[in-house]
Design a binder for these strands. Structure first.
Lengths: 188, 188
DNA sequence: TATGCTGTTGATTGATCGTTCAACCATGTC
DNA sequence: GACATGGTTGAACGATCAATCAACAGCATA
């Protein structure tokens, strides 16, 4: 997982993995018939960990559903900041690296995004009363994922948090305006 | 350029390039001492083409500066739609594929993003009177880049335009609300 | 002690990778 | 015709790649 996240799939050789794991090639190929099978296993671990390993820790002690969204984004910022803007979202990196991924690979990547947006949509649904009527929380969650992934991409490319922070700030402004519009609605 | 955009840098072999170009290795290496030098040349072509090859064609016949932003986004949608959600933004793909890019590579990538956001910021500055006072047009342009790149990433992964369209739609809603707030301001 | 089963070892394989280079060709100059 | 120059040819190279496999080890059950 670490090597794929740090160097990407194509640039990580099986020899790298063996060395890092202190294993022999036979052992690896006993468990994973193919390098790609290992990738799928890694991606499945990400997918099934999005709830318990990412969202829940980020939301510990944060009750407000909209604050939870920004607590999650703060996690990504922390990952970027503590790695000189190199380590962002491994799923996004792999999603763009694999151009013609075999169906199983693409499906797990899509499932990871699905789990992420579902979690964020859960927050938005919990705050539905504070949003304008008819607000599309699914679309909003996808929007937030875009802002995060795009921000990570810019941060990594510029080696600077400016673009990431700008995205989070304007997203905050947008959600604020949505909530203001909703409270105006309520008054009528 | 086409091969790097379609298959990525790492997955494009020099043999692929030679075959596609109908050239011999010696000729290629006469012009480009290294595969990476070829990548840099490709990226420089992208960077210097962002104005004349991307923005200006997208903006032909579109006068309104904010309409220009959505005309640009519509270009990316068209690229996705006409390629089954495979071909999106080659610069973004390469930016995330290259994890530890040599300085020259990263600089050209960063320069491309810079040129893109500068163009979009130009639109926003042209529409500054319709935006709230103190609106950070640079941050807004970076925000729009994030929405585009994140939307492309989701579209490619899900093989569906849903996430991309959601991003553009909500971005439109946000800009609308900013303009509404600005026109309220003006009245005071 | 013998027999199977699960997993390990690590040298080895053939393919493919980016890159090289001596020979060669086309063209212009004197 | 001699020579220099800029560019091309394509077989070959060493490195590295993912993957293989016959031999072996640990450990349960018979």
């Amino acid at each position: 997982m670490r090597l794929f996240a740090e160097k990407g799939y194509g640039s990580t050789s099986v020899a790298d993995i063996l060395h890092e794991a202190g294993a022999n090639s036979g052992s690896l190929y006993h468990a994973f018939p193919t390098k790609q099978d290992l990738l799928v296993a890694v991606l499945e671990t990400y997918r099934s960990g999005i709830g318990p390993m990412l969202l829940e820790p980020a939301w510990a002690g944060v009750g407000d559903p909209i604050a939870r969204i920004f607590a999650l984004l703060a996690r990504y910022r922390e990952a970027l900041a503590s790695s000189d803007c190199v380590y962002g979202c491994p799923i996004g990196s792999l999603a763009l690296e694999l151009h013609e991924p075999d169906p199983p690979v693409r499906e797990v990547l899509a499932g990871s995004f699905e789990a992420w947006t579902a979690g964020v949509q859960g927050c938005l649904d919990a705050a539905r009363s504070r949003l304008p009527t008819g607000a599309d929380t699914r679309a909003l969650a996808q929007f937030i994922l875009s802002v995060m992934e795009g921000g990570v991409m810019q941060a990594r490319t510029h080696r600077s948090l400016e673009g990431f922070d700008a995205g989070v700030r304007l997203l905050g402004d947008y959600l604020q305006r949505l909530q203001a519009a909703a409270s105006l609605e309520e008054r009528t």
